[in-house]
Design a binder for these strands. Structure first.
Lengths: 208, 208
DNA sequence: CTTGAAGTTGAACTCAGGTTCATGTTTGTG
DNA sequence: CACAAACATGAACCTGAGTTCAACTTCAAG
């Protein structure tokens, strides 16, 4: 008999962990392609090569699986970004590395990218959590750079959301919509922009 | 008997137009609150104070109604923004006015804001159209300012998406998440940021 | 070898919601 | 007033999908 409990109260063996992961991987694919509501558990279990009933051994329901995916993604992305940024010294290099790492992550996990965007309508809490944690970490880094005098004194949170928005939209445009050959140039442009603004003197040089 | 056709091949009387609009208005509410899939036509017709069957007199199906809503929203927003921007002379004032108008629009049409974000998973074409048209108009304006020497020479498209991303995320944070009292300050911060960048000298003045 | 916990299965149950349609009502025109 | 087109209705049909469950298999420990 099945007795799932919150998430996986049951003790999992390596075999169980493997099956569970298969379901998570399949869900990443299916949710990413079709969206939460349009995805059926039947398709997820098929792609995971397990029977329908197996699903409920490892997850309470469709919703719980989705929430776990989003949370997992958030953690992975934050870790990826913080690692990428740590290797850099100047704030600008940190930003460049952060953008690059984000785009690379997005390219590798296109489906997860789309999954997060849906979280807004599936589970408000996990969606808020995702963006707030990301923004908080970002703002902390910015604040430190401001206090060191490397950046002007802005509200770190406002700037964090602004920069996240830039990354999100450029990712949408140049990663999701498939024009990777333009990505590198876009990163250069945008780093110059965030460094010196739209009136960047560097960008005015060519004028007569 | 009903015979809908693509959209509304049937000649509508003023009574018909009124009912149709009631359905659109109700759909805006319901889709915005629950998302496309989770919204039922039954709820939409209830809120519109019409019978279930009436829905199919005016719309081919649920999907068609959604697509029309998104397209309608896109048009309204573009018109709103272009009007707001036209009143300004300098590029920076145009940007400020554009941001303000966008946030105001988002505040008035929170549901529509959420609807657009879902279009990605409901109808790829209408979603691409929405962002591409917006970006194209934005880029045209930026390009003109660059050619006049008011801005540095960037790729207008890259900057357009970057600025759209900023607006989208700040709207999410300070309009959707309900902290309107911080909005005005956020706009000031972000205009300063896009004007002179993160190292804005104006923002460094206070340092010893 | 025994035993029980962990794992697996897929048919069957339920039910919600999109769509259809036959019927009845309203409205404007000649 | 008559007639047709437009409008409105909601019960009924139908399909798909989430979830349950009782029976079966695998596996490791003792």
């Amino acid at each position: 008999m099945n007795q799932p409990s919150p998430s996986s109260a049951r003790q999992l063996t390596s075999r169980g962990r493997r099956t569970r992961q298969q379901l998570l991987d399949a869900a990443e694919l299916v949710f990413g392609e079709k969206g939460f509501e349009a995805s059926s558990i039947a398709e997820i279990t098929q792609r995971a090569d397990v029977a329908l009933g197996t699903f409920y051994v490892y997850f309470e329901n469709k919703h719980a699986l989705f929430v776990e995916l989003v949370a997992q993604l958030g953690e992975r992305l934050r870790k990826t970004l913080s690692t990428a940024v740590k290797g850099q010294t100047t704030r600008l290099e940190k930003e460049r590395a952060g953008f690059r790492a984000f785009f690379e992550f997005a390219g590798k996990h296109r489906n997860l990218y789309r999954i997060v965007r849906q979280a807004e309508f599936v589970d408000e809490a996990v969606y808020l959590d995702y963006y707030r944690k990301l923004a908080a970490a970002y703002a902390r880094g910015l604040k430190a750079s401001m206090e060191q005098g490397e950046l002007g004194r802005f509200d770190p949170e406002v700037i964090a959301y602004a920069l996240m928005g830039i990354a999100d939209f450029l990712g949408m445009r140049f990663v999701l919509w498939n024009e990777p050959e333009q990505l590198e140039r876009a990163v250069d442009e945008v780093v110059e922009f965030i460094a010196h603004g739209l009136r960047s003197p560097a960008r005015l040089k060519e004028r007569p």
